[in-house]
């Protein structure tokens, strides 16, 4: 099972890219989708039953419309907020539940974060569409690999 967690605050403009992505892909087969304001310790339990997990968040300061890549658990950083980093959630899942799903992060570029308002900027919407298309292609490949691994294990 692939778990997608889209997180951010939709009341803060492009910070809502994560939840907007989650809404777009909700209903896809073999994907469990969760949307939240931020990552917390609870998400360690959520991902413990997944084979792969994709963390989707808004991104600042990149020239790319989106960035996607693998990530590994990390306990190195400070855990100094109510919210956690994706790497810390992965590490918690491993530490607490001996779960080691493969981790990926999908950062989607936003440009308007400052003031309280709902809705994505036109640039963020365009980036979201590109990220979604990429993710759907990746998902098809990931499912194929999962099936191949299942067959090999059988």
């Amino acid at each position: 099972m692939i778990q997608v967690i889209g997180y951010g605050n939709p009341g803060r403009g492009d910070d809502g890219l994560g939840p907007a992505f989650a809404a777009r892909i909700s209903g896809l087969s073999n994907v469990r989708v969760c949307s939240d304001y931020q990552l917390t310790v609870d998400h360690a339990l959520l991902i413990a039953s997944a084979t792969q997990v994709v963390f989707v968040d808004a991104m600042m300061g990149s020239d790319s419309p989106f960035e996607f890549g693998p990530m590994t658990p990390s306990t190195a950083q400070d855990l100094t907020s109510h919210s956690l980093s994706p790497a810390a959630v992965l590490a918690l899942a491993s530490t607490l539940f001996e779960a080691t799903p493969k981790g990926f992060v999908l950062g989607i570029s936003g440009v308007a974060f400052g003031r309280v308002h709902e809705g994505l900027s036109p640039q963020a919407r365009a980036n979201l569409t590109l990220a979604e298309a990429y993710f759907r292609d990746w998902l098809a490949m990931a499912h194929s690999q999962d099936l191949a691994e299942d067959r090999a294990n059988a």
Partner: peptide
């Protein structure tokens, strides 16, 4: 304290 509504986009919030 909850200073509320942290915009926590990747790359933000250095200490």
């Amino acid at each position: 304290p909850c200073l509320s509504c942290a915009t926590h986009a990747l790359g933000q919030m250095p200490l």
